[in-house]
């Protein structure tokens, strides 16, 4: 399984902060993104600004994802004040 973490605006739109997706051969971050949008169409307009991390490192959407890894969906950050 692959764990997917959602935060802030994305978590609110999806109505969840965490889900598990089945892993498969050749799964990439882009595949995970596509599965998320299929499940939560409300995320579609947010896509252009989303970044992704695998096991806490920012990665490109063509990065591979293996079983047991954690993918985080990172909307534009706004820490500080």
């Amino acid at each position: 399984m692959i764990t997917v973490l959602l935060f802030a605006s994305v978590a609110e739109k999806a109505g969840t902060r965490r889900l598990e997706l089945p892993d498969g051969t050749g799964t990439t971050v882009g595949d995970i993104r596509d599965q998320l949008v299929e499940r939560y169409p409300a995320l579609e307009p947010m896509l252009p600004n989303l970044l992704f991390a695998v096991d806490e490192e920012y990665v490109r959407t063509d990065a591979p994802v293996r079983a047991g890894q954690t993918v985080a969906v990172i909307p534009p950050v706004s820490g500080g004040c």
Binding site: F7, A8, S9, E12, N49, L51, P76, V77, S78
Partner: peptide, 23 residues
């Protein structure tokens, strides 16, 4: 840094998506 703020006003609220963010 993956941190996000939501502004809460008298009549609503919104997640702020930082213009300085890498995203």
């Amino acid at each position: 840094v993956p941190v996000w703020k939501k502004e809460v006003w008298e009549d609503g609220e919104e997640w702020i998506e930082g213009p300085e963010s890498l995203g």
